[in-house]
Design a protein around this nucleic acid. Sequence first.
DNA 1: GAGCCGTGGCC
DNA 2: TGGCCAAGGCT
Length: 291
Amino acid sequence: MSHSPDLSTRIINWFAENRRDLPWREPGFPAWGTLVSEFMLQQTPVARVIPRLAEWLERWPTPAALASVPSGEAVRAWANLGYPRRALWLHAAAVQITERHGGVVPHDVDDLLALTGVGDYTARAVAAFAYGHRHPVVDTNTRRVIARAVNGNAEPAPPSNARDLAAMESLLPTGSDDAHTFNAGMMELGAIVCTARSPRCDACPIADLCAWRLSGYPEYLGKRKAVQKKYEGSDRHVRGLIMAELRAAHVPVTTVEIETLWSDATQRDRALAGLVSDGLAVYEETGYVLP
DNA sequence: GAGCCGTGGCC
DNA sequence: TGGCCAAGGCT
């Protein structure tokens, strides 16, 4: 677990020169905007988030604004970002922020964790990036950089919160400003240099002390994260087709219309029942609508 | 803790 | 072409 004492400094200096100009890094970007962006960025690439985020914040500039509309409006505005439950959860979080915190996104990690849809990553990201508090922030990019540079592995082991947070804490600078920059810098390095498929070690500020590189890029032999199941023909596929129909429609979608979306009745019924169970679809007199 | 949950771009 | 991957979280 030994590392060069200036790994953190290198990352911080590299970040100052190489950071992308992203909306949530603009001065004065509101904490609410940070929270919304983090919800959207959960498993959705940056490039697809940026336009939806701008629309979202223009329409709902505060948690109270979002809380005041039906959750279905959030699901519709979520558009094709994927995993529409996140839109439902973000709406629920906005209601909770309005009711419990006077409409102000909380600073405290435990208060953030108590919000629907906010897990360990998002809670620490908001506390650190929106409010400047010193917390280790560990996402998939950070985990990969630590796995390679520190542990000498091509890939991180499956996420373990306690272990990953402890590893990041041991690297985190003492000062809150440096800690903030280091958290962001590790994520940025993993996102644009130390990437999953073809790392650009020639552009890496810590290449000369990267344990993985120094040991000759050994193949990863440890436990891997589960392989994603095929999307084509899956229940997720069918759910996606139904949700696209519900988002596009402004009148109830009839059962007959839903039948045209997927021929396998068993799978179709299962998908629809799942959406209803999740609260993403509601039956209303003549058909299904958004909540 | 494994499985599940959308969508699209990239090599 | 198609498998892999993307600022996770919930059950």
